[in-house]
Design a protein around this nucleic acid. Structure first.
Length: 678
DNA sequence: GCTGTCAAAGTTTTT
DNA sequence: CTTTGACAGC
């Protein structure tokens, strides 16, 4: 905007506005940038990194930028590399919190009685551990316990503290399980997702030497999506920056949508009290959306109590009215949206990639996919079941994990029983008993156990031939490339035949294709980045999607959950299933209380989700809700979401759009012009 | 005791 | 559609 007026204008992009520029240049102390949706927050972070590197001569390896998702980290890295030379950026850390935690744990493993080749348990693994400890199949109970443990960990509370503050019998049970859960993970030489942040945060807090050492490594810290940090992450930020407090955090309290994962909005407010000299900068100019969209967004979010007052505005014109449509059911909704996208692409001379369909829950994508396939509309799906959650992928990863860490009992169990090789429930039972009696891992116990310990010769043979195979592969792992090792693994386990023997041809082919894709990916990772088997196994735990170099079809309609859509933008957005019960989503009903009392905090979070959805739209927004929807196994009558009314729409008078009523004559004119342009 | 076959049921959001 | 649960042969 006014690059000419400042001394550093030349190398700083001239398209920064006054506030953005202020945020980039401010280095004297802690800085909080409140960045509304579409206000250019990523631009601020990337420009600031470039500024630190080029103008302030910060060494790249002393700058750390943290994000929540791998995608955000990758994008940020790309954008920084577009601003500075590869040489200047060498050693720069741009990673997720979890990836930094992993790096920390590897370096400081000795402080945790952890081998450097520890395993990382994902949510599924950890649930299995809890299931084992609880000895129940009651899924609701298992999830409740897992959730409780996770929240405690994220709040930096240990098992004893958790037990002390447990409110009800369920929490007391969870707290006692927590203790055994910890012991079990330690025996497996494993950590879970939460530990990746909690353990570093705890050590940094309690160990002066370690904290000093890391503070010397981090001269400047930047955090993206700060509103989604939890207690552990905040503690980590505090420890890493220390009294020098050289950091910039960027966030938006209106887009906090991860409370269920332990994120606490209070971290934003706390910053102002913990750092009295905090520089606060608000970015309110939106560069993404037309005014009709912003008006709807502002109206909805006005129903939340907010920490910092903020009102988005833009110069992108009035825009067309937001359309709200009632549908008879979700199939008709899908059908209608498919047709509309088709028609609009033609009318607007747009491309497929200009359209996105956003929804609250993954299952909603199913019908949409079906319809789009029928209509021959190309689409890509984001969110949803991750590649690394597929059974065949977990199978192979179990082998890899076991090769990396022979203490990893869950990996042993999965590998030993897949493909079927005569090792079953009873064998594992006996082995488990023997192993715990002798304090051995299942793998080690396989070599020590005999027929005297309650195993038939046949069981013993099956077990030992597996153990010996893994031992042999483990030996080769040290001298051979990951690619060769994987080939041998697949050959010796006859994994491909196993797929074709147990599944129909089509399914087997699909799975084998996935396995080969995984192997190619692993081989590439080990080749390019020189990762060892251990590092590969650990790395995979933190990755949900296969990072493909290029999408096979870049021009496609985007299907995404609201959570996964954060940070993205599309010219034309369809927000579907905007009904009471879905958005806002009704949680599981409490078994005790008959009357459903709403948790206002949860409604507020759902409202932020709605806000995130609305603000993805650049030019047009279409909201739909269904009068009936199949839930569980019954057709349920649905009410339109309260958020629709909050936007200013009366669903009984769909033609009447109050948002338009408030348009000034000039805005109306601009809107008409916009319409004509298309 | 292991394994495969059949039936049923199930899903909020993610590192 | 795909993953989990119970039962009957091998």
């Amino acid at each position: 905007m006014n690059a000419e007026n400042t001394g550093v204008g030349h190398s700083l992009a001239s398209d920064l506005n006054v506030r953005q520029r202020e945020a980039v240049l401010y280095l004297d102390g802690p800085c909080l940038v409140l960045a509304g949706a579409g206000s250019g927050k990523t631009r601020v972070i990337t420009q600031k990194i470039a500024y630190l590197l080029r103008e302030c001569a910060f060494p790249a390896n002393r700058i750390v930028a943290l994000t929540f998702t791998n995608k955000a980290a990758r994008e940020m890295r790309e954008r920084v590399l577009a601003l500075v030379s590869g040489k200047q950026a060498k050693g720069l850390t741009i990673s997720t919190f979890h990836a930094l935690g992993l790096r920390f744990l590897r370096q400081e493993a000795a402080h945790f009685e952890l081998k450097p080749d520890f395993s990382i348990m994902d949510a599924t693994d950890s649930l299995a551990v809890i299931q084992e400890l609880l000895a129940t199949t009651d899924k609701a109970r298992l999830r409740a316990v897992q959730q409780a443990i996770s929240l405690w960990k994220n709040a930096l509370l240990g098992p004893d503290q958790a037990a002390a503050q447990a409110q009800n019998p369920l929490e007391q049970e969870a707290a006692s399980i927590y203790k055994y859960y910890e012991a079990t993970l330690k025996a497996y030489q494993a950590v879970d997702f939460d530990d990746l942040i909690r353990l570093p945060a705890r050590l940094l807090k309690n160990n002066d030497e370690v904290r000093q050492r890391w503070q010397n490594q981090v001269h400047y810290l930047l955090v993206d999506e700060y509103q989604d940090t939890n207690e552990c992450q905040y503690s980590m930020v505090r420890s890493l920056t220390g009294s020098k407090s050289r950091f910039t955090v960027v966030g938006d309290d209106d887009q906090a949508i991860y409370a269920w994962r332990g994120a606490t909005l209070e971290n934003l407010g706390r910053l102002t009290t913990d750092y009295p000299h905090l520089k606060l900068i608000k970015l309110e100019q939106n560069y993404r959306s037309v005014q009709s969209v912003l008006r709807a967004a502002n109206r909805v979010i006005a129903n939340n109590t907010s920490l910092f007052e903020k009102e988005l505005w833009s110069e992108l014109g009035a825009g067309e009215s937001i359309r709200v449509t009632a549908m008879d059911n979700h199939e008709i909704e899908a059908e209608s949206i498919g047709r509309r996208i088709s028609a609009e692409r033609f009318e607007r001379r747009a491309e497929w990639r200009d359209f996105a369909v956003l929804y609250r829950s993954n299952q909603q994508a199913r019908v949409i996919e079906q319809v789009l396939r029928n209509l021959r509309i190309p689409y890509t799906l984001s969110g949803g079941q991750s590649f690394f959650d597929k059974a065949e992928i977990r199978d192979i990863m179990a082998y890899l994990r076991l090769l990396a860490n022979s203490d990893d009992d869950p990996a042993f169990i999965r590998a030993a029983t897949t493909p079927r090789r005569g090792v079953g429930q009873a064998t594992l039972q006996a082995l488990g008993t023997y192993a715990s009696a002798h304090s051995l891992s299942l793998f080690a116990a396989s070599f020590a156990i005999t027929t005297d310990d309650g195993l038939a010769q046949r069981q013993l043979d099956a077990l030992q031939s597996f153990a010996r195979l893994m031992q042999e592969l483990g030996r080769r792992a040290k001298e051979e490339s990951a690619a060769d090792l994987l080939d041998q693994l697949l050959a010796h386990t006859r994994y491909e035949s196993y797929l074709y023997d147990t599944l129909d041809n089509r399914a087997a082919q699909a799975r084998w294709q996935n396995v080969r894709e995984l192997c190619a990916w692993l081989a590439r990772k080990s080749g390019e980045d020189g990762l060892s088997i251990t590092e590969l196994a650990q790395h995979v735990a933190l990755v949900t999607m296969l990072e493909r170099n290029d999408e096979e079809n870049p021009d496609a309609v985007k299907l995404s959950t609201l959570h996964a859509a954060k940070g993205l933008e599309f010219p034309h957005v369809f927000l579907i299933g905007v009904e009471e019960g879905l958005l806002p989503h009704k949680g599981r009903e409490e078994p005790g209380s008959t009357e459903v009392k709403e948790d206002p905090a949860r409604i507020q979070e759902e409202r932020r989700l709605m806000y995130v959805g609305i603000t993805r739209a650049q030019r047009s927004l279409h909201i739909s809700w269904c009068k009936r929807r199949r839930r569980a196994r019954q057709d349920v009558i649905c009410e339109p979401s309260r958020f629709i009314a909050e936007m200013g729409f009366d669903v009984k008078k769909p033609r009447d759009n109050p948002a338009d009523e408030h348009l000034s004559p000039s805005e109306r004119l601009a809107m008409l012009k916009d319409l004509l342009k298309q």
